[in-house]
Design a binder for these strands. Structure first.
Lengths: 222, 222
DNA sequence: AGCAATGTGAAAAGAATGTGCAAATTCATG
DNA sequence: CATGAATTTGCACATTCTTTTCACATTGCT
């Protein structure tokens, strides 16, 4: 198993430095220098871990992180240029596994990469499941059949299916789906779940979304 | 010597999750949900370690930390909600032993707790038997077979199995399970025990939960 | 035996979820 | 900017599941 690491960093010099250190540490890094192509690259190449700069030409780091999280749990380490940029990370859980603040020593980065990989090591996630999600189109695929989902439905499904078996409380789901701190009744989630189930049932006969009484919902564990 | 851990965290959901993980790891956590009572509680109960949220209703984490340091060297791990809060920690040594930044995985917290305790004292090793509990799924595994438990059943089993061989009185169980001071008849515990036993029996033939006459219940000591 | 504690099943009480509908909101378009 | 369609939201009621309690049976203890 190769240890592909994706480096997304617009300062070429820095990217090169990181690259060198990671090669020395036995990884196989790949560099991208702007934001627009990142999501595609990740979908195609399934890296083991992503080092993601927050400030990027093209699409910005937070947005990229969110999009990746819709279809993958790959570990992401955010790299922030300066202390005050950190403020942008505050909007709670944007889905990154760790973050590093410049200026950093390359040694430190390698150490963090190792740490994150160690933490997430036990992940036999052979994607290719029966469900595939396409964040660009807000579509899901089950057994090759297409579901058109609304935005909320898509986020909901992406979250649940992102970690099959894990139970999400309604509040957790709300926090993740409405990142703008909107106030929403928890029963609203039930409504969306119902619609999701209905759409899923149209193309698939087993129930994939389970309710866990007094806790929340989870996606079928495989 | 029991390993009491004090959790001070206003998000009840999070407190409960941490609580579960720590019980599973063989500790005896106690939760407080606001800042004003913390110092008193610590003086009376002498916990082994404190997990202290920085942002709290009532007295704030830094102030609490300072006050505790006036009379005790108990290890304190600060929990910060967001990255920018870290700034408040960096400047001065406020006396904490470590800090953790949300979002964190409960596993990570347990690891840090162990690390801090290792540094500051001698630590009894946690054991991993035939029973595994997953607080994020409210599931138990025995011999690889899955038990679906209700919330109360899960907490009950987690408590008992967290310290195999230790006898818990019904009142102790009630106090731990219903942290909201609910009033519940002690016979209620018996009912839940019965259901637990039934579910366990479906996948395992030896009796794992034992009644100790006129005292309470304990989990099979191995 | 006699008292106390625990096991058991069933039933009442309590909570959470499913469902259909309608009101509010958003969004694209004329 | 108005309009209608699609989406989102929240509610009320039905349904399901869980929790709690109780009465009675059984077991353990002195």
């Amino acid at each position: 198993m190769t240890q592909t690491i994706l480096i997304v960093e617009d300062t070429q010099e820095l990217a090169q430095l990181l690259n060198d250190y990671l090669v020395l540490a036995g990884f196989h890094p790949h560099c991208l220098y702007e934001g627009n192509t990142v999501v595609d690259w990740v979908m195609k190449n399934h890296p083991q871990l992503i080092l993601l700069d927050l400030m990027l030409p093209g699409k910005d780091g937070i947005e990229i992180c969110r999009e990746i999280r819709e279809f993958s749990q790959v570990p992401i380490i955010m790299v922030t240029a300066r202390v005050d940029e950190q403020a942008r990370l505050t909007g709670l859980d944007i889905g990154a596994d760790d973050y590093i603040c410049k200026p950093f020593s390359p040694r430190e980065v390698v150490a963090r990469v190792r740490a994150v990989l160690r933490r997430t090591a036990v992940e036999p996630l052979p994607d290719k499941g029966l469900l595939q999600l396409d964040p660009e189109k807000y579509q899901a695929n089950i057994n090759g059949r297409v579901l058109s989902l609304t935005v909320v439905e898509f986020h909901l499904l992406a979250l649940l299916a992102g970690t099959p078996g894990r139970v999400f409380s309604r509040n957790q789901l709300i926090e993740q789906i409405y990142q703008d701190q909107r106030v929403v009744s928890d029963r609203t989630i039930d409504s969306h779940i119902k619609k999701l189930r209905k759409k899923i049932n149209e193309v698939h006969d087993r129930e994939l979304i389970h309710s866990i009484y007094s806790v929340g919902y989870k996606f079928e564990e495989i």
